[in-house]
Amino acid sequence: MGNASSLLQLLGVDAFGLASMITQAALTARRNRDACQQLAEHVRVVAGLLRRIHQTLPRLRRHPETRRPLEQLDDALRRAYLLVRSCGHEQAARSYLYRLVTGASTAAKLRAAEEEIDRYIRLIPMISLVATVRAEVQKKGVQFSAR
């Protein structure tokens, strides 16, 4: 602790500034814990909906143009799972000081993961439409090309 306080004195951080920094970092760490839990819940909801979509519309995975975005969504969900899992491990394995220092980076990763998942979710209506049109056209015996 003595080395840390000497370093902070050299950097010109007074006790009030240090207390303010710690308070801000603690709030960020708490928000990250909440954001991590929200991301986990979001992933659970999305996974449940995807499971239902895959059961009712298996034709979505038959063709590359409709399969690719769903695979990308699956990959985004896997990365989100790993991120959420690392949040839990981070809480247990890392020191409080480390979590305080890396809080902003973790917050950015959580936001990015949720935004990526939502980007792919917004494509699902279009994916379903392409699959439906493809099925209708093929029923009529006409060759369908989504390109």
Rank of each mutant, 00 (worst) to 15 (best):
L70M: 11
L70V: 05
E71L: 15
E71T: 10
Q72F: 00
Q72L: 08
Q72S: 08
L73I: 05
L73S: 05
D74H: 11
D74A: 15
D74S: 12
D74Q: 13
A76G: 09
A76S: 13
A76N: 02
L77E: 01
L77H: 00
A80W: 04
Y81M: 02
L82Q: 15
L82C: 04
L82Y: 04
L83P: 11
L83T: 07
V84Q: 09
V84N: 09
S86V: 00
C87A: 10
C87Y: 04
C87L: 03
G88C: 06
H89C: 06
H89Y: 10
H89L: 10
E90Y: 08
E90R: 13
E90S: 14
Q91G: 00
Q91H: 15
A92G: 03
A92W: 11
A93E: 15
A93Y: 15
R94W: 15
R94F: 15
S95F: 13
Y96G: 02
Y96A: 05
Y96E: 14
L97Y: 15
L97E: 12
Y98T: 06
Y98A: 02
Y98H: 07
Y98P: 00
R99A: 08
R99C: 06
L100R: 06
L100C: 12
L100P: 07
V101S: 04
V101T: 07
V101W: 14
T102K: 09
T102N: 08
G103V: 12
G103F: 10
G103P: 07
A104K: 14
T106Y: 01
T106A: 11
T106E: 04
A107Y: 03
A107Q: 11
A108N: 14
A108C: 01
L110R: 02
R111T: 08
A112I: 06
A113T: 02
A113F: 10
E114K: 08
E115R: 12
E115D: 11
E116S: 13
E116Q: 12
E116I: 09
E116V: 10
E116K: 11
I117W: 02
I117G: 10
D118R: 09
R119K: 11
R119A: 08
R119W: 01
R119I: 03
R119Q: 09
Y120C: 00
Y120V: 00
I121A: 04
I121Y: 00
I121K: 05
R122L: 11
R122D: 09
R122G: 13
R122M: 06
L123K: 14
I124P: 08
I124L: 13
P125M: 03
P125C: 05
P125R: 05
M126R: 04
M126E: 07
M126W: 04
M126G: 11
I127Q: 09
